[in-house]
């Protein structure tokens, strides 16, 4: 299987990072696609949780929002939103929080609040939604986003969700006991934080992508792990599953927002 897009590689690489035993708090958009590809391939028993209260959901098409009826209809159970945040997230039941980002810095801090100054923003973004506590209460955090100089920046304009702060042991200094961001999957590479500094380093480069391209689409100085692999290309099963999921989604949401990608809290 040689013909695939960088976005397909991103979704599939992200799906591979999830296991059958995970309890995953799913952000909308790219994380949602990855989590459902994992469920439809190697992790059929993964528990997917959306912040609208749906626990153990198994949608046949990707939802446009975190509260689509499909999520509730296919869930094991649906709980009220306060219960979702108190018992299930704060209670420590989530192994992986899976987030997207508008702006991301090299330490996994995320901004989805404002571009520019908070009081007088250049662009008012939707805000954090569940992300601030997903970032601190999930066992660990995976982040997925397509690379761009506007998106991957040295300094974010607002700390919507805390990753590793200024790096090192900054999380522990704030009394946060969870691991924080442990994985970043972009359309070009798989990144993991350096064990000491906590700055993201490229661990593997997707087939067809180059170091030049990674540097050109990232505003910070890209660091590389001691050994950098090539990400294994998508298998026929992975690619087929993703494409069928997208086709079902497009058919179900025909004439609607699906082609624009899903964005919400």
């Amino acid at each position: 299987m040689s013909d695939f897009t960088p976005n397909e590689m991103m979704t599939i690489a992200a799906a591979r990072a999830l296991s059958n035993d995970d309890v995953c708090f799913v952000g909308i958009g790219a994380p949602s696609a990855a989590c459902n590809v994992a469920r439809l391939t190697h992790a059929p028993d993964i528990t997917l949780i959306y912040e609208s209260g749906t626990i153990g959901t198994a949608p046949t098409v990707l939802p446009l929002s975190i509260g689509d009826g499909e999520l509730c209809e296919t869930a094991l159970t649906t709980v009220a939103v306060p219960e979702m945040f108190r018992y299930w997230l704060q209670g420590g039941r989530i192994t992986i929080g899976f987030l997207g980002a508008a702006q991301l810095d090299p330490f996994g801090n995320i901004n989805t609040t404002v571009i520019g100054d908070y009081a007088h923003p250049k662009t008012r973004l939707p805000g954090g939604g569940g992300a601030p506590e997903i970032a601190s209460s999930s066992g660990e955090v995976f982040i997925t986003m397509a690379q761009s100089k506007r998106g991957m920046v040295k300094d974010i304009d607002f700390y919507t969700s805390f990753g590793h702060g200024r790096g090192g042991i900054h999380r522990q200094e704030l009394g946060i006991t969870t691991k924080g961001p442990t994985l970043l999957i972009t359309d070009l590479a798989v990144w993991r934080p350096n064990p000491e500094t906590k700055e993201f380093e490229v661990n593997s480069i997707h087939p067809g992508a180059t170091r030049e391209e990674i540097a050109r689409t990232c505003d910070w100085d890209v660091k590389y792990a001691a050994s950098v692999d090539e990400t294994p290309p998508p298998t026929a099963e992975e690619l087929g599953t993703l494409r069928e999921l997208k086709a079902r989604t497009d058919a179900a949401h025909a004439g609607t927002a699906s082609k624009r990608g899903s964005k919400d809290g």
Binding site: A119, P132, E133
Partner: peptide, 13 residues
Amino acid sequence: VFRGYKGAGLKDV
């Protein structure tokens, strides 16, 4: 009362 806003910028604004 809850465990939240750790390291989050909203606390400052």
